[in-house]
């Protein structure tokens, strides 16, 4: 088991290096000059040139990348062009907010979707199943920023139950978490249903029934555990989509997370901040996938025994 986890962590390293390289080069395509941005419009030619030299902006991109990585390994992601504060401090301040938002959203989706998916599968073609699946498909098709606006209109502006934005206590988490959870709830429900349908047709389900195992236990013990294997894959992928969705949801609800930080930084052409945000997002996604793979090994003995 430890061997398996170590192996998975080692596999993450080249991918993360690749991510930094890729993102660094994409961002370096940004037109405009960082030095003149930092110094503002009144700066003289000489002072701009001086700062460029000092920041190493005249070096080839690859040299700049190596320097960036050197700093990154020491835990330094540079300074914001716009505020001058370190990227680290800004991200450290914002990251917990995005974490709380996305984790509540994924928690909410799993909590809702797995039971609905299971019931739909065990009552295939029933009204519950048909209506549930249509709602799920609509759920997948709704853009989160629009759903967010509708929820604000209904529950904040009309009913006044929740704040329309900002981050003041638990109550302000509810609308954005729901908004973010809708699409992933829908797609995890669909996956759970289809993998349950696949599983309940397997021979070992018949074996269990032939032993005299009751219907409920067949579903809960024999079918669900097998059906969760594909469902967990989708939960991992959904987490990625959710992180992306956080950018939009945070914008709609003025939620001070990294997503909103990233959008603001793009608008301000604050490259180090954009770079830092994307890398943190990718890292978070990779860690989630790592956790998913470990969960896998716990559920599926075939994986565990390959590495023991």
């Amino acid at each position: 088991m430890t061997k398996y986890i170590l192996r998975r962590i080692l596999m993450m390293i080249p991918v993360m290096l690749g991510v930094t390289l890729l993102v660094f080069f994409i961002i370096s395509l940004t037109p405009g000059d960082a030095a003149s941005m930092i110094l503002g419009q009144e700066a003289t030619e000489e002072s701009i040139a001086e700062l460029r030299e000092e920041m190493g902006l005249n070096d080839p991109t690859i040299v700049q990348y190596v320097r960036y990585m050197g700093d990154l390994f020491q835990g330094d992601m540079g300074n914001s062009y716009a505020t001058g504060k370190t990227v680290n401090s800004e991200i450290a301040q914002r990251f917990p907010n995005t974490f709380v938002l996305t984790v509540s959203a994924i928690f909410l989706s799993v909590l809702i979707s797995i039971p609905i998916g299971v019931v739909s599968a065990t009552r295939q073609y029933s009204i519950f199943d048909n209506v549930g699946m249509i709602i799920a498909l609509v759920g997948i098709s709704m853009p989160s920023f629009w759903t967010g606006l509708l929820l604000i209109i209904a529950f904040s502006l009309k009913l006044g139950w929740f704040p329309s934005g900002g981050m003041e206590g638990f109550i302000s988490l509810i609308l954005p978490a729901f908004t973010l959870a809708i699409a992933s709830t829908a797609s995890i429900t669909r996956t759970t249903r289809s993998s349950m349908l696949e599983v309940i047709r397997q021979d070992y389900i018949n074996t269990a029934k032939a032993k005299g195992v009751t219907r409920n236990v067949v579903i809960r013990k024999h079918a669900l555990k097998n059906a969760l294997i594909p469902a967990i894959t989708v939960i991992g992928l959904e987490f990625g989509i959710l992180l992306g969705g956080a950018v939009l949801t945070e914008t709609v609800f003025s939620w001070p997370g990294i997503g909103r930080l990233m959008v603001e930084s793009i608008q301000r052409k604050d490259t180090p901040m954009v770079l830092g945000s994307v890398i943190v997002f990718a890292l978070a996604f990779s860690v989630v996938n790592l956790i998913i793979d470990i969960l896998y090994a716990f559920i599926d003995p075939r994986i565990k025994s390959n590495y023991s």
Binding site: Q202, D203, Y204, N206, T207, A208, A210, K211, K221, H222, K225, N226, I299, D300, P301, R302
Partner: peptide, 16 residues
């Protein structure tokens, strides 16, 4: 009791 045709698929893969 019943024994099914294909032993490869007749046992639940995630239970000892």
């Amino acid at each position: 009791s019943m024994i099914f045709q294909d032993p490869m698929t007749a046992l639940n893969p995630v239970i000892t």
